[in-house]
Simulated assay, not measured.
Amino acid sequence: MDVSNRELTKLLDKTDQAFKQLMQEPGSIALNSAYESAKQELDFYLCNMREDLKKRYKDF
């Protein structure tokens, strides 16, 4: 597995775990914040990945 796939896997796992914890305590402000933070990290990573792919394959 290359570095980007490991990072993506890590971020997906983090988001999934944060969501599962939030579902156990839906009213928790701290868990909601952790989930939102994990989603934001994942979104940022995916946005960067998309931009890199656009640059790499713009001539195809």
Rank of each mutant, 00 (worst) to 15 (best):
E25W: 04
D52G: 04
F44G: 07
D43S: 13
R50G: 06
Y45V: 07
K55C: 01
D16C: 02
A30W: 01
M49F: 12
K55W: 01
Q17H: 08
N5P: 00
F60G: 11
K10F: 15
Y35K: 02
D2W: 02
K20F: 07
M1L: 12
Q24D: 06
K14V: 04
D43T: 11
L8H: 07
G27F: 03
S28L: 03
M1W: 09
F44M: 10
Y57R: 02
Q21K: 13
Y45L: 05
T15D: 02
L46H: 04
L11A: 05
A38E: 00
K58P: 00
Y35E: 00
Q40P: 01
D13K: 09
K39A: 06
Q17E: 12
N5Q: 15
D16N: 14
L53A: 13
K54N: 12
D16T: 15
L31V: 05
D13E: 12
S33K: 07
L46F: 02
L53T: 03
D59F: 05
E51Q: 07
I29T: 08
L46P: 01
S28Y: 07
Y35W: 12
A30E: 15
S28F: 11
E7H: 10
S28A: 03
K39H: 05
F60K: 09
E7D: 13
Q17V: 09
L11F: 13
D59Y: 09
Q21R: 15
Q17T: 12
S37G: 07
K20C: 03
G27V: 03
A18N: 01
L31C: 06
F19I: 03
P26G: 05
R6F: 08
